[in-house]
């Protein structure tokens, strides 16, 4: 019996997959949505198509960034088409890696990282360390080209044994210390707009201060098998059902006669 196809083997061995968007129209929808809303929120007198997200730091003050980000997140999550298009960017790959009866995170997240901004850092972590189920995968979509510190880092899957051994020695003093110990083993993801990253969130990952001169704008959302175990982030409060198959529907409705 052949258990895994080439995508699955790659995902297991490497911890992530980068591919071209399966649906460029959907990627465009997401990008245009963000640009349109930003032009409106910032009261810019330009056509949204001319807004270069790489240069967003030129239009927004650092101390206003979080307010703008929260407003955008709220608008993103009110738009059902946004959610649908988000999934369509990597639908087939998600089916390969996660399954075809799915739960999707209720709120899609938006990250905006200005050059040299210290306020939106996500130190090294694995989502499972803070209440996520190990059955989840993250679909990460760059709205600009990401590289080096403008991107996120991840520990390669093959280094996980070494990580666990070192961690259990209990010599690590703080989160910064944890990062320093594994710095050499972390890989910054190079990914362009129009591609998607699907990664194993059990692997330690995070970001650093963006030391490039461009802004990073990216989206992330978690997917999991509908019937796989949930941890604190459960069905209803954090995830919602995305796809149920006919046999499941029949099973859920079934009652023994009598």
């Amino acid at each position: 019996m052949k258990l895994y196809n080439k995508f699955e083997k790659n995902f297991i061995n490497k911890g992530f997959i980068i591919n071209k968007s399966e649906n460029p129209k959907s990627t465009r929808y997401l990008s245009n949505f963000l640009k349109k809303r930003l032009v409106r929120l910032l009261n810019l007198k330009i056509n949204f198509k001319n807004l270069n997200l790489n240069q967003l730091h030129l239009y927004v003050k650092s101390n206003e960034l979080n307010k703008i980000r929260l407003k955008l997140i709220s608008q993103i999550n009110k738009d059902l088409k946004f959610r649908r298009n988000y999934f369509l960017v990597a639908k087939n790959m998600i089916h390969h890696i996660v399954g075809n009866e799915l739960a999707m995170q209720i709120n899609i997240n938006l990250s905006i990282q200005f050059p040299n901004d210290e306020s939106s850092l996500l130190p090294i972590h694995s989502d499972t360390w803070s209440g996520d189920s190990p059955f989840e995968s993250v679909l990460w979509l760059p709205m600009v080209n990401c590289y080096r510190t403008k991107s996120m880092f991840i520990l390669e899957a093959k280094k996980m044994d070494y990580f666990n051994k070192t961690f259990s020695k209990k010599s690590i003093k703080s989160v910064d210390d944890l990062y320093s110990k594994f710095k050499k083993n972390l890989k910054f993801i190079k990914i362009n707009y129009g591609e998607f990253l699907l990664f194993n969130q059990n692997l330690p990952h995070g970001n650093l201060i963006n030391r490039t001169n461009e802004t990073r704008v990216s989206l992330n959302c978690r997917f999991k098998g509908l019937f796989t175990p949930y941890m604190q982030k459960d069905l209803g409060s954090f995830f919602s059902p995305l796809k149920l198959r006919a046999a499941t529907k029949l099973g859920l409705d079934y009652k023994l006669p009598g």
Partner: peptide, 16 residues
Amino acid sequence: TEYGIKNCFLTYFQLI
């Protein structure tokens, strides 16, 4: 957020 690992206080010490 403090990590869910038992007896882990890495975030606590980071905040200090």
